[in-house]
Nucleic acid binder design. Structure first.
Lengths: 351, 351
DNA sequence: GCGATAAGGGAAAACCTTTTCCCAACTCAG
DNA sequence: CTGAGTTGGGAAAAGGTTTTCCCTTATCGC
């Protein structure tokens, strides 16, 4: 009989119930419940005694029973189709953070791009009586492959295209682009090129339009944005076009605003291979602030951050207030980006 | 009064209950329950009628009520501290896949490295009566900052250090390293270097040891692995050391096995800058198979894949069988890696 | 036509907690 | 000492489902 090191039997003995607490304290379950919840009337002594017993027994109320009664599960579903992407993780973390602070747990639903799988998840959520659903994607301009429009529970869309009449939160891509271009202008750059992704993406146009507007507003010549792919390789190719032998050296840009960090990486590498110095000859700014890329470029990349964690947090809070019965203004709300300045864009002339 | 386009009032009218189905079908709730679950005895006609009514009313059983009764919530918690990492996402997707197919939903718990937050999440899970917990991390050789050892519900550890006596699943890093080195040997490479991460990581030693063993087993000279950081920059530096002027050209390695894909990227870039051709002069293999990096290197990078999605799937299934009462052998189970061959290692001499 | 058996279906308890309503006992003023 | 008011605490219903046990009715053999 080894008296030490009680080996904590794996036996799943059932959790302590309120009934047991009440019995141990010599009161009814009703009184026990009221004591623990600060409800009802009783002597302070009784209340304390019940609390002490509950504490000693390690009582924890069964949320399933509570939910059944309250018709509120304090649980929401988080749908995403971005399995491998870098967008969903910070977003999900933001959602989770905002909600756990409010006692709400989050069901993770990875739906890929599979309608059947999505249906499966949504039905599971509904059966589990989630209080609401957050739909998340990898593109602002695409729907998830699931219909969430007649769900009788609130739905918030974050970083994905919302249903008409629903509430959606996305990044302000135009604003982010303005941030980048205006920063270049403050640094004294004047011939600013824009190398970005494929025409099929709405953000490509939103950012390109903002780029044009800022330049036009400053009376500067507006180059035609170069549309391509979201890849390093395209960044290389774009440099070949912008800095090719066809143009004179004085026709070269002194800044390149890139549609994402991978393009920027390609641009920077290609410039170095051509002996063009970054940031001395040409400044570069990326988009997404994907740290692991932005910090590995030489020099480290200034980039527009979409604040996805905040976006997630806001989405969580928006859903919470919807669940609480507050009517939220439907429509798309754009959340500001921020510029994370590293060394690829250069310092201000005076500094 | 527009008669078309009924605007689907947002009113949250409560879901249909079994009682309503029973009433509509003119039977008792008991009979209705049995009809829908294929239990009890009744005429096929009755059963069908009840099913039809349930269908028509859109009845879906309330899982909270079911869980309360069955003492099983068909829900598990997924703890992770890898908020921004590339490891957790495929792992989580694998877990989620394996479980949703079994009707089990997954609570996402992002605990950062914060003990308080972890405690909060674990208690929330316990209160919600999860059937089990999967603990996930970003390092095999580190604990999560939470104690899960006396939890009365099963716990499975995936890609993080398990508690003693618990069941844990990790990648077989030594096996992965062998895969890489043996592939080089098959390709006829003989002077194989190893550039890897910091000494503080257990995987660094596991992989280095396997690297040594394979070379020794083939009677080849074993170079000392170069330990550094998990970064591109270290890859650059390592090339400077391996291919520096100190050694004669014939002392140069003809292959470099890298501890991760970022190091490999740095190595490849540095080799190109030195005019050394990959894979003709030197083959390179990475680790992690981080596609977005592996496919952007020039040439695309051969890399060891840890099969994290499978790992997640296995972890989910292991937890499920534990929850089902099957006693699982405690201890660490290592799951094999696989080599994803691209173009950075060269083709076999004959091919 | 009678007893036995099977078939079809229902009543009620159970899961755990919260909340409303109620009851008994006590206090206090008159 | 009586009536009103207050205090402390309990009984019971509610929430939705499953399951056990029981009851009624029909069927069948003789």
């Amino acid at each position: 009989m080894s008296a030490d090191a009680e080996p904590a039997p794996v036996s799943a003995k059932p959790p302590v119930t309120l009934r047991e607490v009440a019995a141990a304290a010599g009161v009814s379950v009703a009184t026990a419940s009221k004591a623990l919840n600060g409800q009802g009337r009783m002597t302070a002594e009784t209340r304390e005694r019940i609390r002490a017993v509950a504490q000693r027994l390690g009582f924890r109320p069964n949320h399933l029973a509570q939910s059944l009664l309250r018709k509120r599960s304090f649980t929401v579903g988080l749908l995403t189709n971005d399995t491998y992407g870098r967008f969903s993780l910070p977003l999900m973390a933001g959602v989770s953070d905002a909600l756990v602070d409010n006692g709400v747990s989050v069901f993770l639903c990875n739906v890929e791009d599979d309608t059947r799988l999505g249906q499966l998840h949504v039905e599971a959520m509904l059966d589990k009586r989630v209080d609401g659903i957050i739909a998340t994607g990898k593109r602002i301009d695409r729907h998830l492959p699931i219909d969430l429009s007649n769900l009788r529970i609130p739905v918030v869309y974050a970083f994905t295209q919302p249903d008409p009449g629903a509430v959606g939160l996305v990044s302000d891509d135009a604003g982010g682009a303005r941030l980048a271009v205006e920063h270049f202008l403050r640094l004294g750059r004047r011939r600013i090129a824009h190398v970005t992704g494929p025409a099929g993406f709405a953000v490509v146009h939103a950012r390109a339009e903002a780029y044009r507007e800022v330049l036009a507003a400053h009376g500067l010549p507006v180059g035609e944005p170069l549309l391509g792919a979201w890849s390093e390789a395209w960044g290389h190719d774009a440099v070949a076009r912008l800095f090719g032998s066809g143009r004179g050296r004085e026709g070269w840009p002194d800044a390149v605003f890139c549609g994402n960090d991978q393009i920027a990486r390609g641009v920077i590498d290609a410039l170095r291979e051509r002996g063009i110095r970054v940031p001395d000859d040409v400044g570069v700014i990326g988009f997404d602030n994907w740290e692991i890329v932005a910090e590995a470029t030489r020099p480290p990349l200034t980039s527009v951050d979409m604040n996805l964690a905040s976006l997630g947090r806001e989405a969580g809070l928006a859903l919470l207030s919807l669940v609480g019965g507050q009517p939220a203004a439907p429509g798309i709300r754009k959340l500001p980006c921020r510029l994370v300045v590293r060394q690829s864009c250069g310092r201000p002339p005076g500094g």
